[in-house]
Design a protein around this nucleic acid. Structure first.
Lengths: 192, 192
DNA sequence: TTGACTTTACTAATTATATTAGTTAAAATT
DNA sequence: AATTTTAACTAATATAATTAGTAAAGTCAA
C-alpha cells in the first residue's frame, strides 16, 4: 500500500513505454499509483527529475545487460553482441529509450557518468579487437555513433520486423568493423 | 507590424536555438513577437504543430544545403561533403536539430516525406560510389545512422572544438566508406 | 508499550500555460 | 465603396505542475 521511489520511477517508465514520453505526467503517474498528484513530491523533486531518473535507470540497465552479453566474448563478436543487446533493449523499452534521448539534452553530471560507464565497456572490448590504442577515441566515437543512430532510425521498423532489423544491424556492424580493421589494426612487430 | 506564419516559426526556431526546445512556449513566442498568446492561433494549430513546423523547415533547409554541397561532386567525396554540411547545420542550429529529433517521435506523414527526400539524395550519391545497387538499402541505413548518431553524440564538443569534430566526422566517414567499399563494391565485368 | 520522530499520504491553494470563444479593426479583394 | 478575409484583441476555461500546511501511519529507542 505504501509507495516507494522505485515504484514511482517504474510506473512512469511503464507509461512511457506504453504511451510515449509525452504522455508521462505527474497526474497520470499518480493515477496509476492510486495516490494524489502532490503525494509524488514525497518521492521526487520535480517532473524533470523524474524523467531523468527514468533515463538513468534505463541506461544503467542497458549497461548491465551489455556487460552480461559481452561475457565470454572478445573482438568483433563481443561488439556485435552488445550492439544487438542495445537494440533489443530499445525495442522492449521504446519509451525509456525516448527518455534517454531526452536526457541527452537535459542531462546532468550523473547522466555523463553513466554514459562513461558505457564508454568504458566499449573501450575494453575495442581493445580486444587488436586496434591500435592510439586511435581508441576515434573508434569509440564511431561505434557509439553507429549504434545510437542506426537503432534510432530503424526503431520504427523494429516492431514489425524485429528479426530483419537485428540482422541488418549485425551486418552494418560488420561493415563498420571491416573499415575499422582496415584502418586501425595493429600489425605485430615482425623483427625484434 | 502584421505577423506572418513564417515569422512565428522563425521566432520559435530562434528561441529553440538560443534557449533550447524546452523553453519554446506559446507565451514566450508571443512575447518575442509583441503580440498576445491567443493571437498565435491565427497562424498555427497548436504548440505541437508549431514544433513540427520548426522541424520540417529545418529538415528542408538541411536538404537544400546538402544538395548544394553535393553539386559537382561524386562518390566518397560527395558523401563526406554532405556529412560535413549536416554537422555544420546542427552546430549552427542545435535547437532546431533538437526539434527534428523530437519530430522523429512525433512526426506525421509530411515528416516522413521530407526525410525521404534526404534519403533520395543519399541514394543518388551512393550509386555514384559504384556500390552494388542490390545492397543500396543496407548502405543507406548505415550512412544515415552514422550521420545521425555521430553528430548527435559529438554535438556537446562541437561548440568548443568545431574543427576537431568536423575532422573526426570526416575520418569516421572514411572508415565507414572503406568498410562499404570492401563489402559492396561492384566489380566491372571483365569479359563481355 | 509509549512517546518522539520520520515518512508519506492528504486537501487546499497557487501558478503557469495551452486553448477556445467571441469581438473588432485593419487589410485585401471584388 | 462594399464585402470578405485576416489577424489582432480581451475574457474565460482547462489542465498540469508545484507549494503549503496538516494528519495519519510506520519506525525505533527508552
Amino acid at each position: 500500500m505504501r509507495i516507494t521511489k522505485a515504484d514511482v520511477i517504474q510506473t512512469a517508465a511503464d507509461i512511457a513505454d506504453k504511451n510515449g514520453l509525452s504522455n508521462v505526467s505527474l497526474k497520470v503517474v499518480a493515477e496509476n499509483l492510486n495516490i494524489r498528484t502532490p503525494s509524488l513530491y514525497n518521492h521526487i523533486d520535480s517532473l524533470e527529475s523524474l524523467l531523468r531518473e527514468i533515463a538513468h535507470n534505463g541506461m544503467k540497465t542497458m549497461n548491465e545487460r551489455m556487460m552480461q552479453a559481452a561475457i565470454g566474448k572478445i573482438g568483433d563478436d563481443a561488439i556485435k553482441s552488445i550492439g544487438i543487446t542495445y537494440l533489443n533493449y530499445m525495442i522492449e523499452h521504446p519509451g525509456i529509450y525516448e527518455t534517454i534521448q531526452w536526457a541527452t539534452w537535459h542531462g546532468t553530471e550523473e547522466t555523463g557518468k553513466i554514459f562513461d560507464n558505457y564508454l568504458s565497456l566499449l573501450k575494453t572490448l575495442a581493445l580486444s579487437c587488436n586496434f591500435n590504442p592510439v586511435n581508441l577515441d576515434e573508434i569509440l566515437n564511431l561505434l557509439t555513433g553507429v549504434l545510437h543512430g542506426y537503432t534510432t532510425l530503424q526503431l520504427r521498423y523494429a516492431f514489425t520486423k524485429p528479426d530483419k532489423v537485428r540482422a541488418d544491424l549485425s551486418a552494418a556492424l560488420d561493415t563498420v568493423l571491416a573499415g575499422l580493421h582496415q584502418k586501425y589494426d595493429q600489425h605485430e612487430k615482425e623483427h625484434l
